[in-house]
Amino acid sequence: MAGNTSRPGATVVSRVLALLGAFDETHRRLTLTELARRADLPVPTAHRLVGELAAHGALARTPSGEYVVGRQIWSLGVLAPVQTGLLEAASPFLHDLYAATLATVHLAVRDGTQVLYLDRLSGRRSVPVVSTVGSRLPLYPTGVGKVLLAHAPERVQVEVLSSLTRITPHTITQPARLRAQLARVRSDGYATTVEEMTLGACSVAVPVRRNEAEVVAALGIVVPSLRRDRPRLVAALQVAAHGIGRSISDGS
């Protein structure tokens, strides 16, 4: 939620960005009143700006009168450098992984203290998950998130470990235990979760490295259980991650 955009002198750009920033993973549909409140704007100001954003396709109004992010914003978002080259390089490998496993496959990057899902492939036989393309989830209870957190700067790790919230009965919320797990992620080269984000869903993920050094993304698979297939899934993920890393390194 944006702050103090209603102050005198606030620019139109800052107010528009506050309105767009009012949307997040848990606020995908907002009424005009909710938009104004979350953007810290007077309702008449929000009404005027929202109308212009809707007219240009940045927002769209649902039949029930709520507003959602429009296609124009999505079209611009996919042009972001963090996505274009990485998504193009990763796409064939994600499709190969999905074809081989029929499990939900994720490509994700770190966005501050959250994991941002850039792509997801799944089918009717896949385990139901809460992630969607463009969604953000906490780093610590997700496989791809743990990979990214393990390779994040110390300040990010400190911030995340200072506010661990239980999402399921299996979510790790003890900082010392999570730190030990992150150390194993760095040494083993992969991360796992067992029903920490969603009951009935386990995940395994590996880092994607540029020039075989910098971790720029994480590649993960969600399955019902890791008891038998973990070695096979880790191997498949590592082959795919190496291929993606080589592609983005050659193109950089």
Rank of each mutant, 00 (worst) to 15 (best):
N4F: 11
V16W: 06
A18W: 07
A18R: 03
R28E: 12
E34S: 13
A39L: 01
L41S: 00
P42F: 08
A46S: 12
G51L: 12
G57L: 03
A58Y: 15
T62N: 08
Y67G: 03
L79I: 05
P81H: 11
Q83Y: 12
Q83I: 14
T84I: 11
G85S: 10
A89E: 09
A89M: 06
F93A: 13
D96Q: 14
A100T: 13
V105T: 08
V105P: 08
D111F: 07
G112T: 00
L118R: 09
R124F: 11
P128H: 11
V130R: 15
S131A: 15
V133A: 12
G134S: 00
R136W: 01
R136L: 07
L137P: 02
P138Q: 07
T142Q: 08
G145L: 00
K146T: 05
L148D: 00
Q157C: 03
E159M: 02
E159V: 00
V160E: 01
S162V: 00
L164Q: 04
H170P: 03
L182V: 02
S187D: 14
G189W: 00
V194W: 07
V194K: 05
E195R: 05
G200Y: 10
A201Q: 08
A201H: 11
V204P: 01
V208M: 08
A213C: 12
E214W: 00
E214R: 06
V215T: 14
A218E: 03
V222A: 13
V223K: 01
P224F: 01
A235M: 06
L237K: 03
A240H: 01
A240W: 02
G243S: 09
